[in-house]
Design a protein around this nucleic acid. Sequence first.
DNA 1: TAGATTGTTAATCGATTAACAATC
DNA 2: TAGATTGTTAATCGATTAACAATC
Lengths: 203, 203
Amino acid sequence: MKLPVKTVQRLSKYRRLLLKYRYLSKPYIFSHDLARLFNLNPVQVRRDLMLIGASGNNRNGYNINELIDLISDKIDIKNCKNIAIIGMGKMGQAILNYVTEEEKHLNIVAVFDIDSHKVNKTFEDIVCYDIRKISEIVRKKNILIGIITVPSDYAVSISNILIESGIKGILNFTSVHLDLPENIYLKEFDIITFFDEIAFFIK
Amino acid sequence: MKLPVKTVQRLSKYRRLLLKYRYLSKPYIFSHDLARLFNLNPVQVRRDLMLIGASGNNRNGYNINELIDLISDKIDIKNCKNIAIIGMGKMGQAILNYVTEEEKHLNIVAVFDIDSHKVNKTFEDIVCYDIRKISEIVRKKNILIGIITVPSDYAVSISNILIESGIKGILNFTSVHLDLPENIYLKEFDIITFFDEIAFFIK
DNA sequence: TAGATTGTTAATCGATTAACAATC
DNA sequence: TAGATTGTTAATCGATTAACAATC
């Protein structure tokens, strides 16, 4: 199924909200309620839902449980969404906490660091492996997504190792732009750029 | 000056790269070099530079130092770019390290936490204040940008305090969507959504 | 029925890129 | 001059939204 990037992002947000609302309110929600909660246009919400084949009714709106199931069916990977974090510094640990606390459908199955004080320790019950074992563990645990939170200077070599090991998607938190093959889905997360953007637009 | 969001983001990246290249290579750079380094179209680079009134010459390309100065002149705030981070957990500390290490033109002048063990300590030489002093310190230090890295449940109340204290831009790292007045520039940073996006597109 | 809503197409808006003239 | 480049407009592509028919 082909969906626009922005639609996938919004569907992810809708689902998270709906999961919270699941048992709190009546089992239906209107497109304009969902829209209001995210500052969106109700038409946009209906269009997003249309694209995944959702149907509501014009008396009650959309059934919350059906919507959750349908979004999950359309955007989740079925068999494997195993994730590794490379770099257990503050950023790596922050992301690990964040994901293990808030989301149950994302599986972080391994973390890596170069520091021997961290290797073989656990973080949120996940074993930290030596960074030299990336290739071995990624294959063994069938990891498809890698999060790079190492110092910027190591980003390129880590990304090369990940790709050789068969990873399919990379989230890069360093300030170095990665030039990857077309078949690897890359998402870069550049904090300084966001600061500069915000500084420009508050002028 | 009015510039597209995407152009501002790219200009920020160009500048960072040019600063690194400043003394390493010859003092000129071609649009296609800059483009290649970021996987962009050279036309796009030239268009971005055109929008800020840069001019190159067709023998050598663009003068690196002139470009740095021009980008800085166009995108930086002149008098004040004071920033505060609210929440000195792992994410807050990670961002603080990141910014103080890599960027000299962004001034983080205060950090805040609720934990009495952190209050009055320093992080990267910056004093951590009690979260109840946000209003006082934001005004006193003329802080215009706030980074929210508190637990999600506190995000809304912190954003209200920041806005009452006169902040103009907010970077929200929690998973809660903030509904802010039009005149506040908001940038949301939702990690789970990025995970879901990447999972969808590697299918 | 009147009113509120969904579902969908067409129009609009914004960003990217193709095309090409001008310059050295 | 031929070739490479800049600078700019027009065309294209993608995402958002206006308009409106269909439904309860």
